[in-house]
Amino acid sequence: MKSPIFKTVLLAILFGATLAGVKTYYQYQGSKSETAKLYQNIGGDFSLTHIDGPFDLQRLKGKPSVLYFGFASCPDICPLSLNKLVKAFDAIEPELHKRVQKVFISVDYKRDDAKKVHEYGKYFATDFISLAGTEEQIKDITKKYAVHFEFVPLENSAMKYTVDHTSRFFLLDKYGQVFNSYSDIIYDGQFKLDLIEVLK
C-alpha cells in the first residue's frame, strides 16, 4: 500500500509532465504556423533542365523534396552539403531516401549544364535529381526561393570566376510548397521534426 504522500508526488509529476507536453505541442504548432507565414511568399514554379529533358516544379509534386543550390566547381561547400543531404536521411532512417527527393540546382549557368550536374549529383546518390538552367531560368528560380548568387571575377586565377551563393537546404512538401529551410540538416533537430510532418 503506497502512502498518500507518494500518490500526491506521483500525481504532481504526472501533471507536470502533461503540462510540459501540452506546452511543447503548442509551441511547435505555433512555430509551424510562424514558419508557414514566413515561407508563404517563397518558392513557386520553375523551369530548368534535367539530363532527360525539361523539368519543372510539377515533376516534384507527390513527394517531399529537399533542394540545395550550388555549383559543380565549388570545391568544398557544395560537396559537403550534398553529402549532408545524403547522411541526414541515413541518420534518421535510411528508408527515407526513397520517399524524399534530393535536388541539386546549379546556379552556375555559365559553366554547368544538365549533363555535368547529373554526373556530379550521381556521385553523392544515384537518385539525386540534378538540374541546370539558362541565365533567365536561374535568375527566376533564385529570386523565387530567395537564394543569392553572384559571379565574382578571380583576376589572377585559372578559375576565372567563382560563384558566391546562399548555402541553405529547402524542404518542400508533397505539394511543392516550401515548408522550411535550414543552414544545416545534420545537427538541426527541426529538420527531422519537419520531415516527419511532411511525410504524413
Binding site: C74, P75, D76, I77, H148, V152, L154, N156, S157, A158, M159, T162, D164, H165, T166, S167, R168, S183
Partner: peptide, 20 residues
C-alpha cells in the same frame, strides 16, 4: 594538374564565398 592556387573560404550571412 596545370594550375595550383591558394584559395580560402568564408561564410558571410549564410553566403558562401571563395577567394584567391
Amino acid at each position: 594538374a596545370l594550375y595550383y592556387e591558394i584559395h580560402t573560404h568564408k561564410s558571410e550571412n549564410g553566403i558562401m564565398k571563395m577567394r584567391q
